[in-house]
Each structure stands twice: as structure tokens, then as C-alpha cells.
């Protein structure tokens, strides 16, 4: 048993280290003095300096963040409503409904992107940030639904019933009891939908208006013609750093709450 445990431990941490090798390379090269992305030729902060004057990178980063945030909010609202509706009221044909809602998840993204682009063209809807958002929601709302539904199915209705017998009406119960109980699943759904939207390239590429880059699209258009500047690495390093600080603070906060 001990041997198996040790092997397991070694395996786990080896994989964790391997996961971080490319990230480490990226961070290291953000400090590279030369333009080479393969050979390290000395330490420099040049990439960081050029990053701060690169308005287009920041613009695209900003676009990525705000569109993703709207996508998350809309997807969560739609997802919660659908998951609650399907699991709680079990309308006739709810299994079919359930399968239908999940179709966007199993359809390959390239197909969704192409069909949406053609549809928008044929109907004559001009592209705007709205079309990007709606394209993401069409995938992310079902994703949120899937995660939340699992939580709804698995839980105890007693709390809700207790609230109702204590005189709360259904809407109050939904807001005051159901939603807080769902929080862990909601957070998980929020995180996954955010990451998906923030990282999406193909769908955004087909639905973006003129002059509107998100970070993945910006990076791709740079990459495709041989000009990935290392300031992108610098930006990624900063993002990782910020994410680290945020998560650290959140964990500290949670610890404090749990000790109280």
C-alpha cells in the first residue's frame, strides 16, 4: 500500500510540474532581451515596457474581459432558470427538452461558428459585440445548465419546504434559500463559462465586428504572420500573477470565514 501511495504521489506531482513547464517557459521568455522565442539571450524588462504602450493589446484584453463577464451573467441566469424549470416542474417531454438543451455542447465549435456566421449574414444582422456575446451564450448557457442541473437533482428539498412552511412564498424561497444553496455550483459554472468565453477563438473570429479584437483573436492575427511579440508573454505573466494574488486572497478570506 505504502509503495502505491508513494508512486501515486510522485506521479501526481510530476504531472503538476509538467503542466507548469510551458508556463515557466512563457514567463522566462517574457524577460528575454532578444526577440527570439526559442533562445534566451539575457534578462530585460523591454517586453514589459513595450507592453504598456501597446494600446491594441490592452484594448483586446479589456474586450475579452467585459464580453466574457456579460456572457457569464447571461449564461448563468438562463442556465439557472432552465435547470430549475426542468428539474422542479418536470414539464411533459422533459427528457427531450433536456437533450435539446445539451445539443450545443456536443456540436463541434467550428460547426456552431460557421452556421451562426452564415445565419447572421443571411438574416442581415450586422456584427457587433452583441453577436459575439450571443454566440458564446449559445454554448455557455447549456454548459451552465448542465452543471447546475446536476446540483438541483442531487439535493434535498427539505430546506425549501421548511422555508415555505414558515411562510415564505416561492419567489422569496427561490431567492433566499435556493440560490444560496446553489452557490458552489453557480461558482463552478461561472468559472467554467468565464474561462471558455475568455479563451474562445473560433466563434469570436466568425462573429466579431470591425476593429474589435479579443485577446485570443489579437494573438492569433499576430501569430499568423510571424509577429508574436514577447509582450504577449509579458501580458500573460501579469495575468497569471494577478490571478494568483486574487485566488490567494480568496483562499485567505475563506479560511477566516471558516474559522469564525
Amino acid at each position: 500500500m505504502k509503495v502505491v501511495d508513494t508512486l501515486l504521489k510522485i506521479f501526481f506531482w510530476t504531472v503538476m510540474v509538467l503542466i507548469y513547464v510551458p508556463i515557466a517557459v512563457m514567463v522566462a521568455f517574457s524577460f528575454n532581451a532578444s526577440r527570439s522565442k526559442v533562445v534566451f539571450e539575457g534578462f530585460s524588462l523591454e517586453n514589459y515596457i513595450s507592453l504598456f504602450s501597446n494600446e491594441r493589446v490592452w484594448g483586446s484584453f479589456y474586450n475579452s474581459i467585459w464580453t466574457a463577464l456579460i456572457v457569464v451573467v447571461v449564461s448563468l441566469i438562463l442556465g439557472i432558470l432552465m435547470a430549475y424549470g426542468v428539474t422542479r416542474y418536470r414539464p411533459r417531454g422533459s427528457t427531450i427538452l433536456d437533450s435539446l438543451i445539451m445539443v450545443p455542447i456536443i456540436i463541434p465549435e467550428i460547426v456552431e461558428a460557421v452556421t451562426l456566421a452564415l445565419f447572421l449574414s443571411i438574416v442581415g444582422i450586422p456584427l457587433s459585440p452583441f453577436t459575439i456575446i450571443i454566440g458564446h451564450v449559445a454554448f455557455d448557457a447549456p454548459l451552465a445548465y448542465l452543471i447546475l442541473k446536476a446540483r438541483f437533482q442531487g439535493w434535498n428539498r427539505e430546506y425549501e419546504e421548511a422555508a415555505m412552511t414558515l411562510g415564505a412564498d416561492e419567489i422569496r424561497t427561490f431567492v433566499k434559500v435556493t440560490i444560496p444553496l446553489m452557490m458552489p455550483a453557480v461558482l463552478a459554472a461561472a468559472f467554467l463559462t468565464f474561462i471558455w468565453s475568455y479563451d474562445d477563438f473560433i466563434k469570436t473570429f466568425f462573429t466579431r465586428p470591425t476593429g474589435f479584437d479579443t485577446l485570443p483573436v489579437y494573438i492569433w492575427t499576430r501569430v499568423a504572420r510571424g509577429r508574436v511579440e514577447l509582450d504577449i508573454n509579458a501580458l500573460s505573466t501579469i495575468i497569471v500573477l494577478v490571478a494568483m494574488i486574487f485566488t490567494y486572497l480568496r483562499m485567505k478570506l475563506e479560511e477566516k470565514q471558516s474559522t469564525i
Binding site: 456566421a117 447572421l120 444582422i125 450586422p126 456584427l127 470591425t210
Partner: peptide, 8 residues
């Protein structure tokens, strides 16, 4: 250009 959903 074919899709025509953006204008340049």
C-alpha cells in the same frame, strides 16, 4: 466580403 456582416 461574401458574408457582408461587417463593412470595410
Amino acid at each position: 466580403l461574401e458574408l457582408g456582416t461587417v463593412s470595410y
